[in-house]
Design a protein around this nucleic acid. Structure first.
Length: 479
RNA sequence: GGGCGAGUAGCUCAACCGGAUAGAGCACCGGCCUUCUAAGCCGGGGGUUGUGGGUUCGACUCCCGCCUCGCCCGCCA
């Protein structure tokens, strides 16, 4: 493996990309030969068990590779402005006996029981969420297996233990080690068996939002069901599965990427991405494309700016475009990924909202004043007259919309629906664009009216920027 | 078979507890750069909200049936 990693380094290939290809190749390999299928699947099972067990060469290799990919992952996410505080690892959940403690709790409370007959005979199972339990005399065939008959723990079992830790109901804690220091000094910690002291306090959650796609609804509900069964009603109540639909590729997009699309998939609106099939778009590739597209625009629009500044602007635009694209869809809409739409900077997009904010800033710059000064001047005015009549109503509509930001935020939180904020940002930008086209502020002859217009721009700009910050979208210096 | 989600303009999506003429963007057509940046603005065409019933003064929204699509239901994670 060392040899492989050196080889990768020598030809400049990234480990995460190499693993993306390797994972797809290996997944195919499991199924490739009908006669070898069973043996190869057994090999996978044995390997996974060895990794779980730890203290062997397979485990050491897995750790090396996983850690290397993880470091790459942090770099990718940092490009989007996303940083981590703590990376809990499944291996510690087993090695630090989180599972053993959770298992005891589940047995004591009767959540889990040993099945003695039927297809799950020999397993520890729990009643699956949303089911009524055993029908008649027979065993509960719908039950969810938590411990396999060979004694290993399923994913949901480990997840239950993990969430007991999150809620501080386990009486156990991870060891903590420093893993990564971000450029701004922020530390990211990782779980380990023997940690360092002191370390920040993790866990002890009162409320949990699990941001996991909707396909995990059943496993997530089983975790909640287990918490309820253990008498942790408050924990179950404060456990939120922030469920969202998957990102898929349109057949057109798949072909653009060079994938062969099966005839039966041709007519479908979208095709599910799959790591096992090597079918998807890598985040770094998409970000690179977005930056290149933004840079081309910035170079033609801002030719006099230094290269470094242009690149910084392009990055801000690219991230704004990507964040808005991901957030504009409501959670239960499947995002049919489309390069044309993702790379678009016009219409309902992040760059449109950024552009409006940049234009607002330029108005104040050219006016030789600041939003704060404009609002202070406005405070000394008798405002009522300016908000009457058709013209005034239109101004008032913009103020009203700007004033709704906090309300929209509350609704977005209540419904765990960030798309409301994205939409609000767009509407604000749209109404502001409309406003500054209709009223030429700098050439307004009436000083009082000019003050009103500037104050309106100040409010719209302030609220737009505020909402964009909530969405994680920055406003560039120029566009 | 069971569970969850979806079906709205050519395409991608909105529509808060049931409320006024179902809204945006893209695409298309036509205008607007000697005034704060045209990543923009204005105008236009485009809808039997899958379908059949029901409830209601009022239904994209609620109830029932049906059709279509996706996901989940593994001793994988």
């Amino acid at each position: 493996m060392e040899h492989w990693m050196q080889e990768l380094a020598a030809c400049g290939e990234r480990i995460d990309y190499a693993c993306w290809d390797l994972y797809a190749a290996v997944s195919q390999w499991y199924e490739a030969d009908e006669r070898q299928k069973a043996a190869r699947r057994q090999m996978r099972l044995d390997t996974l068990h060895a990794i779980e067990q730890g203290g062997n060469e397979t485990g050491a290799i897995a750790d090396r590779i996983a850690t290397a990919v993880l470091r790459r992952h942090l770099e990718t996410m940092l490009r989007l402005g996303i940083v981590y505080d703590f990376l809990p690892r499944e291996s510690e959940i087993l090695h630090l006996h989180f599972w053993d403690a959770a298992f005891r709790l589940m047995q004591e409370t009767g959540v889990i029981y040993r099945e003695t007959e039927g297809k799950n005979s020999g397993c520890w199972v729990m009643r699956r969420a949303g089911t009524t339990g055993p029908q008649g005399d027979g065993p509960d065939e719908e039950a969810k297996i938590i411990v396999r008959s060979n004694g290993t723990v399923t994913y949901v079992g480990k997840d239950i233990a993990y969430h007991l830790w999150k809620f501080n109901r386990l009486g156990l804690d991870f060891g903590y080690a420093r893993f990564h220091r971000y450029p701004d000094g922020h530390e990211c910690w990782i779980s380990t068996t023997k940690g360092e002291e002191p370390h920040p306090l993790f866990g002890h959650a009162s409320t949990i939002y699990n941001v996991i796609d909707s396909r995990q609804a059943d496993p997530q509900n089983n975790v909640i069901e287990a918490l309820k069964g253990m008498g942790l009603a408050d924990a179950a109540q404060n456990y939120h599965h922030f469920s969202y639909e998957m990102v898929a590729l349109t057949p057109r997009c798949a072909k653009e990427l060079g994938y062969t699309v099966a005839p039966e998939d041709e007519a479908r609106p979208y095709i599910e991405v799959s790591g096992r099939k090597g079918f998807g778009v890598k985040a770094d590739d998409l970000i690179d494309k977005l930056i290149a597209a933004a840079l081309a625009q910035v170079e033609s629009r801002q030719p006099e700016r230094p290269t470094a500044e242009r690149e910084a602007i392009a990055r801000t635009i690219a991230i704004g475009a990507l964040r808005y694209y991901m957030l504009r869809y409501t959670r239960n809409a499947v995002i049919a990924f489309d390069f044309h739409e993702a790379l678009s900077f016009e219409g309902e997009t992040g760059p449109y909202t950024q552009y409006a904010a940049v234009r607002a800033a330029n108005i104040f710059r050219k006016a030789g004043t600041t939003p704060e000064a404009a609002l202070a001047a406005f405070a000394g005015l008798d405002a009522a007259q300016w908000f009457s009549g058709a013209d005034g109503d239109e101004l008032w509509a913009l103020w009203l919309l700007a004033g709704k930001s906090a309300l929209v935020l509350e609704r977005a939180i209540e419904t765990t629906e960030p798309a409301y904020l994205a939409r609000h940002a767009f509407q604000l930008a749209q109404q502001f664009s409309n406003f500054y086209h209709r009223h030429h502020i700098l050439t307004e002859a009436d000083p009082a009216r000019k003050t009103v217009l500037l104050a309106t721009a100040a409010i719209a700009r302030r609220e737009l920027i505020r909402v964009l910050i909530w969405l994680g979208i920055d406003v560039p210096d120029a566009m």
